[in-house]
Design a protein around this nucleic acid. Structure first.
Lengths: 189, 189
DNA sequence: AAACGAAACTAACAATTGTTAGTTTGTTGT
DNA sequence: ACAACAAACTAACAATTGTTAGTTTCGTTT
C-alpha cells in the first residue's frame, strides 16, 4: 500500500460525495466542508473540479481495460472467461465502490477525456460481446440474442457498487461465485 | 390518448435533457432553449424546476406500484409472476424511456417527495423479493441467495431505459420474452 | 369592437458557482 | 535561529443559477 497523499484524500472524499448526489450537485464548498477546510484550500492540491472527476473515472476505466485484456488472451473456455469477467467486476468494485458510482453516473461530465473514456468503454463491450459469441459458436452458450445476454450481465455488474456496501459480510469470492451461478445457470430449477 | 398540453411538452423535454446530463446539470435556460422560448416563460406553465422532477418521477413510481399490486394478487406460479414483472418493466420503460432515466438517476434530488418515493421503492422491492422467496419454497426456483437473484434481475430491468432506444426494431413482446428467457433459464447450455 | 386568456417577452434580483491572488501558519531539516 | 515548504487561510471576482415582476402579443369569445 502506497501511503495516501492529501490529494488522494480529496479525491476519495469527492468520490463519496459524487456517489451520493452526482458530480454536478456537489460544490467545491461541499467538498471542502467534508474535508474540514475551506474551498480555496483545495486548490493547493488539485487543479480543478474537472480534474478530480478525471482522476476518479479514468483510472478505473483503465483497470477494466487491462483486466479484459488478460482475460481474452487466456485459453480458457467461454464460460470460464465470463466467470473471470464477473470476478473482475466484483474485485474492482469492492476496491473502489465510490469511484464506480462516478464511472457509471457521471462519465458524461468528463470534458477533455470524454472521447478517450468512450473509446475504452466501446472496446470493452466489444470484447465482452465477442466472448459470448464465441461461446455460442462453440455450443457452450445457448443460442439466445448475444446482445441481450451481454446487456443483462453487464448492467448487473455495473450496479454492483450499489449492492456491495450493503453486503459487507459476504466475501468477494462468495459474491462472485453466487453471481456467476445466477447469471450463467439461471434461476429455474 | 389525451392531447398533450404545453406543460406536458415541457415535462417531456425536461425528461429528455435530464436523461442526457442529469437533473442538476440541466438549467432552466437549457430547458427553455430546447423549447424555443425564454426561461421566464416556462413559469407560465410550471411552478419550479423541482416540480418538473416530481411530475416525472412520482407518476412512474406509482405505475410500478400499481402493476406490482396486480401481479402479487394473481394466482400465477412464481416463475409466471416473475415473467409478469419483466413485462411490466419492459412496457413502462418503452412508454417513457426518458422518464425512467430520471427515476433511476435523479430520485435523490427529490425534495418534499423523497420519503414518499423511497417508501414506494422499498415496498416494491419487498414484494419482488417475496415472489422469489415463495418460488424457492415451492421448489420452482433454485435455492440460490434470493437477494442476489433479485438484485440481478432488478438492475437489469432498471437499465432497460438505456437499451430499448437502441433496439427499436425489437418488439416489446419479443424483448420481454428474450429477457425472461435469459434471466430465468440462464445462458449455460 | 371590446374583453379575455394563454403564452410569450424584457429586465432584474439575490444566491451560489468555480476559481484566483495574496497571505498566514506550522512543521521540518539545517 | 533560520530557511523552506506544505497546507491552510481571507477576500474577492465574474459567471451562472432559479425565480419574480411587470409587460406585450395575438388568437378566440362575447
Amino acid at each position: 500500500m502506497k501511503q495516501e497523499t492529501r490529494k488522494d484524500e480529496i479525491i476519495n472524499t469527492a468520490a463519496k460525495l459524487f456517489k451520493e448526489k452526482g458530480y454536478s450537485a456537489v460544490t467545491m464548498r461541499d467538498l471542502a466542508t467534508a474535508m474540514g477546510i475551506k474551498a480555496a484550500s483545495l486548490y493547493n492540491h488539485i487543479n480543478s473540479k474537472q480534474d478530480i472527476l478525471k482522476a476518479i473515472i479514468i483510472s478505473i476505466a483503465e483497470e477494466f481495460t487491462n483486466g479484459m485484456e488478460t482475460i481474452i488472451q487466456s485459453q480458457d473456455s467461454s464460460i470460464s472467461k465470463l466467470k473471470s469477467v464477473v470476478t473482475l467486476h466484483v474485485n474492482i468494485t469492492a476496491n473502489n465502490t465510490n469511484g464506480m458510482a462516478s464511472l457509471n453516473n457521471d462519465w458524461m461530465h468528463l470534458e477533455d477525456q470524454l472521447n478517450y473514456y468512450l473509446q475504452l468503454r466501446n472496446d470493452y463491450e466489444a470484447n465482452f460481446l465477442n466472448i459470448i459469441k464465441e461461446g455460442v459458436s462453440s455450443l457452450e452458450i445457448k443460442d439466445s440474442n448475444p446482445e441481450i445476454i451481454m446487456f443483462s450481465m453487464l448492467t448487473t455488474l455495473r450496479s454492483l457498487y450499489l449492492w456491495i456496501p450493503k453486503k459487507e459480510d459476504l466475501k468477494s469470492n462468495d459474491l462472485a461465485d453466487n453471481l456467476s451461478e445466477v447469471l450463467i445457470e439461471g434461476i429455474n430449477k
